[in-house]
Amino acid sequence: MADNGQDDGLIMALPKGRILKEVMPLLRGAGIEPEPAFEDPESRQLRFATNHPNLSIIRVRAFDAATFVAFGAAQLGVVGNDVLMEFDYPDIYSPLDLGIGRCRMVVAEPKEVADDDNPERWSHIRVATKYPQITRRHFAGRGVQAECIKLNGAMELAPALGLCRRIVDLVSSGETLKANGLVEVEQIADITSRLAVNRTALKTRSEEINGWVESFREVADAA
Protein backbone atom coordinates (compact mmCIF):
# COMPACT_ATOMS: atom_id res chain seq x y z
CA MET A 1 0.00 0.00 0.00
CA ALA A 2 2.70 2.43 1.05
CA ASP A 3 4.27 2.94 -2.35
CA ASN A 4 1.28 2.85 -4.65
CA GLY A 5 1.05 6.62 -4.65
CA GLN A 6 -2.73 6.66 -4.80
CA ASP A 7 -3.18 6.89 -1.09
CA ASP A 8 -0.23 7.98 0.91
CA GLY A 9 2.90 7.83 -1.19
CA LEU A 10 4.48 10.94 -2.60
CA ILE A 11 5.37 11.08 -6.29
CA MET A 12 8.21 13.12 -7.70
CA ALA A 13 8.17 13.96 -11.42
CA LEU A 14 11.60 14.21 -13.03
CA PRO A 15 12.33 15.41 -16.57
CA LYS A 16 13.90 13.01 -19.07
CA GLY A 17 17.06 13.88 -20.93
CA ARG A 18 19.75 16.47 -20.39
CA ILE A 19 18.58 17.80 -17.02
CA LEU A 20 18.22 14.36 -15.48
CA LYS A 21 22.01 13.90 -15.35
CA GLU A 22 22.28 17.06 -13.28
CA VAL A 23 19.36 16.06 -11.05
CA MET A 24 20.85 12.72 -10.02
CA PRO A 25 23.61 14.08 -7.71
CA LEU A 26 21.03 16.32 -5.96
CA LEU A 27 18.68 13.37 -5.59
CA ARG A 28 21.39 11.23 -4.04
CA GLY A 29 22.54 14.14 -1.88
CA ALA A 30 19.01 14.38 -0.51
CA GLY A 31 19.21 10.69 0.35
CA ILE A 32 17.01 9.35 -2.44
CA GLU A 33 18.19 6.24 -4.25
CA PRO A 34 15.93 5.08 -7.11
CA GLU A 35 15.61 1.38 -7.95
CA PRO A 36 18.23 0.13 -10.46
CA ALA A 37 15.81 0.12 -13.44
CA PHE A 38 15.71 3.93 -13.27
CA GLU A 39 19.14 4.25 -14.84
CA ASP A 40 18.77 1.35 -17.23
CA PRO A 41 18.22 2.91 -20.66
CA GLU A 42 16.66 -0.36 -21.88
CA SER A 43 13.97 -0.31 -19.22
CA ARG A 44 10.46 0.54 -20.37
CA GLN A 45 9.30 1.22 -16.86
CA LEU A 46 7.85 4.70 -16.27
CA ARG A 47 7.49 4.64 -12.54
CA PHE A 48 10.18 3.74 -10.07
CA ALA A 49 10.38 2.91 -6.40
CA THR A 50 13.06 4.48 -4.21
CA ASN A 51 14.77 3.55 -0.96
CA HIS A 52 11.96 5.52 0.73
CA PRO A 53 8.83 3.35 0.76
CA ASN A 54 6.78 6.55 0.74
CA LEU A 55 8.38 8.15 -2.30
CA SER A 56 8.35 7.05 -5.92
CA ILE A 57 9.63 8.71 -9.05
CA ILE A 58 8.14 9.13 -12.49
CA ARG A 59 10.23 10.05 -15.52
CA VAL A 60 8.40 12.22 -18.05
CA ARG A 61 9.00 14.95 -20.61
CA ALA A 62 10.06 18.30 -19.16
CA PHE A 63 6.73 20.01 -19.98
CA ASP A 64 4.78 17.07 -18.59
CA ALA A 65 6.58 17.19 -15.25
CA ALA A 66 4.94 20.59 -14.67
CA THR A 67 1.54 19.26 -15.71
CA PHE A 68 1.72 16.30 -13.33
CA VAL A 69 2.60 18.62 -10.44
CA ALA A 70 -0.01 21.25 -11.39
CA PHE A 71 -2.82 18.69 -11.29
CA GLY A 72 -1.56 17.08 -8.10
CA ALA A 73 -0.81 13.76 -9.83
CA ALA A 74 2.74 14.28 -8.59
CA GLN A 75 3.35 16.26 -5.42
CA LEU A 76 6.95 17.20 -6.17
CA GLY A 77 8.89 17.72 -9.37
CA VAL A 78 11.90 19.24 -11.04
CA VAL A 79 10.78 21.85 -13.55
CA GLY A 80 12.64 24.56 -15.45
CA ASN A 81 11.32 28.09 -15.05
CA ASP A 82 10.97 28.19 -18.85
CA VAL A 83 8.15 25.64 -18.45
CA LEU A 84 6.75 27.39 -15.36
CA MET A 85 6.63 30.71 -17.23
CA GLU A 86 5.05 29.14 -20.29
CA PHE A 87 2.19 27.46 -18.43
CA ASP A 88 1.95 29.86 -15.50
CA TYR A 89 0.00 27.25 -13.54
CA PRO A 90 -1.42 28.84 -10.39
CA ASP A 91 -1.15 25.56 -8.53
CA ILE A 92 2.60 25.11 -8.73
CA TYR A 93 4.86 26.57 -6.09
CA SER A 94 8.58 26.78 -6.80
CA PRO A 95 10.13 27.29 -3.37
CA LEU A 96 13.68 26.31 -4.34
CA ASP A 97 16.04 27.20 -7.18
CA LEU A 98 18.11 24.05 -7.73
CA GLY A 99 20.70 25.96 -9.74
CA ILE A 100 20.96 23.25 -12.39
CA GLY A 101 20.05 23.22 -16.09
CA ARG A 102 21.35 26.77 -16.42
CA CYS A 103 20.69 28.46 -19.75
CA ARG A 104 19.04 31.55 -21.20
CA MET A 105 15.91 32.14 -23.24
CA VAL A 106 16.68 34.47 -26.13
CA VAL A 107 15.36 35.94 -29.35
CA ALA A 108 17.62 35.10 -32.28
CA GLU A 109 17.61 35.92 -35.99
CA PRO A 110 19.88 35.51 -39.01
CA LYS A 111 22.88 37.82 -38.92
CA GLU A 112 21.92 39.60 -42.14
CA VAL A 113 18.43 40.37 -40.76
CA ALA A 114 19.88 41.72 -37.53
CA ASP A 115 22.16 44.06 -39.43
CA ASP A 116 19.43 46.15 -41.01
CA ASP A 117 16.46 45.79 -38.74
CA ASN A 118 14.74 48.41 -36.64
CA PRO A 119 12.61 46.76 -33.94
CA GLU A 120 10.97 50.13 -33.22
CA ARG A 121 8.96 49.84 -36.42
CA TRP A 122 7.50 46.38 -35.75
CA SER A 123 3.78 45.91 -35.31
CA HIS A 124 3.70 42.21 -36.10
CA ILE A 125 6.39 39.58 -36.30
CA ARG A 126 6.43 35.83 -36.90
CA VAL A 127 8.44 33.67 -34.51
CA ALA A 128 9.18 29.95 -34.37
CA THR A 129 9.29 28.70 -30.79
CA LYS A 130 8.51 25.99 -28.32
CA TYR A 131 7.21 28.74 -25.99
CA PRO A 132 4.31 30.55 -27.70
CA GLN A 133 2.85 32.02 -24.49
CA ILE A 134 6.11 33.52 -23.24
CA THR A 135 6.89 34.82 -26.72
CA ARG A 136 3.47 36.44 -27.14
CA ARG A 137 3.62 38.00 -23.67
CA HIS A 138 7.14 39.25 -24.19
CA PHE A 139 6.39 41.03 -27.44
CA ALA A 140 2.94 42.20 -26.36
CA GLY A 141 4.74 43.98 -23.51
CA ARG A 142 6.32 46.28 -26.06
CA GLY A 143 3.29 46.61 -28.29
CA VAL A 144 4.21 44.03 -30.88
CA GLN A 145 1.91 41.23 -31.91
CA ALA A 146 3.87 37.98 -32.20
CA GLU A 147 2.48 35.27 -34.44
CA CYS A 148 3.98 32.07 -33.07
CA ILE A 149 4.73 28.93 -34.99
CA LYS A 150 4.95 26.16 -32.46
CA LEU A 151 7.86 23.81 -33.04
CA ASN A 152 9.05 21.11 -30.68
CA GLY A 153 12.71 21.17 -31.59
CA ALA A 154 15.33 22.22 -34.16
CA MET A 155 14.08 25.83 -34.05
CA GLU A 156 17.36 26.93 -35.62
CA LEU A 157 16.27 25.46 -38.96
CA ALA A 158 13.23 27.70 -39.27
CA PRO A 159 14.92 30.93 -40.46
CA ALA A 160 17.21 29.12 -42.92
CA LEU A 161 14.27 27.37 -44.56
CA GLY A 162 12.09 30.46 -44.73
CA LEU A 163 9.51 29.41 -42.13
CA CYS A 164 10.02 32.72 -40.34
CA ARG A 165 12.86 35.09 -39.60
CA ARG A 166 13.06 34.90 -35.84
CA ILE A 167 13.13 32.26 -33.16
CA VAL A 168 12.75 32.22 -29.38
CA ASP A 169 14.74 29.38 -27.88
CA LEU A 170 17.00 28.27 -25.05
CA VAL A 171 20.73 28.69 -25.50
CA SER A 172 23.55 27.66 -23.22
CA SER A 173 26.83 28.07 -25.10
CA GLY A 174 25.40 29.68 -28.24
CA GLU A 175 27.22 27.19 -30.50
CA THR A 176 24.06 25.89 -32.16
CA LEU A 177 22.96 29.42 -33.02
CA LYS A 178 26.33 30.22 -34.50
CA ALA A 179 26.46 27.03 -36.53
CA ASN A 180 23.14 27.99 -38.10
CA GLY A 181 24.11 31.57 -38.89
CA LEU A 182 21.93 33.10 -36.17
CA VAL A 183 22.74 35.84 -33.70
CA GLU A 184 21.17 36.52 -30.33
CA VAL A 185 19.40 39.88 -30.36
CA GLU A 186 17.66 39.93 -26.98
CA GLN A 187 17.49 37.95 -23.76
CA ILE A 188 14.06 37.16 -22.33
CA ALA A 189 14.99 35.30 -19.15
CA ASP A 190 17.62 33.38 -17.22
CA ILE A 191 16.60 29.77 -16.86
CA THR A 192 17.34 27.26 -14.10
CA SER A 193 15.52 24.21 -12.80
CA ARG A 194 13.31 24.60 -9.76
CA LEU A 195 11.96 22.21 -7.19
CA ALA A 196 8.23 22.41 -7.91
CA VAL A 197 5.56 21.60 -5.33
CA ASN A 198 1.82 21.11 -5.73
CA ARG A 199 -0.10 23.77 -3.80
CA THR A 200 -2.70 21.51 -2.16
CA ALA A 201 -0.05 18.94 -1.24
CA LEU A 202 1.99 21.63 0.50
CA LYS A 203 -1.05 22.74 2.49
CA THR A 204 -2.39 19.33 3.44
CA ARG A 205 0.93 17.51 3.92
CA SER A 206 3.16 20.38 4.93
CA GLU A 207 5.50 18.46 7.25
CA GLU A 208 6.42 15.82 4.68
CA ILE A 209 6.74 18.23 1.77
CA ASN A 210 8.66 20.86 3.74
CA GLY A 211 10.98 18.06 4.88
CA TRP A 212 11.90 17.23 1.29
CA VAL A 213 12.22 20.88 0.31
CA GLU A 214 14.68 21.35 3.20
CA SER A 215 16.69 18.25 2.21
CA PHE A 216 17.04 19.57 -1.33
CA ARG A 217 17.84 23.06 -0.05
CA GLU A 218 20.79 21.74 1.95
CA VAL A 219 22.18 19.92 -1.08
CA ALA A 220 21.58 22.82 -3.47
CA ASP A 221 23.16 25.31 -1.06
CA ALA A 222 26.21 23.09 -0.60
CA ALA A 223 26.70 22.70 -4.35
Binding site: N81, L84, S94, P95, L96, T192, R194
Partner: peptide, 10 residues
Protein backbone atom coordinates in the same frame (compact mmCIF):
# COMPACT_ATOMS: atom_id res chain seq x y z
CA UNK B 1 4.88 35.31 -3.79
CA UNK B 2 1.69 33.73 -5.15
CA UNK B 3 3.85 31.12 -6.88
CA UNK B 4 6.25 30.90 -3.93
CA UNK B 5 8.92 31.52 -6.54
CA UNK B 6 11.94 31.81 -4.26
CA UNK B 7 14.29 32.66 -7.13
CA UNK B 8 12.14 35.56 -8.35
CA UNK B 9 11.80 36.94 -4.81
CA UNK B 10 15.57 36.74 -4.32
Amino acid sequence: LDRKDAAAVA
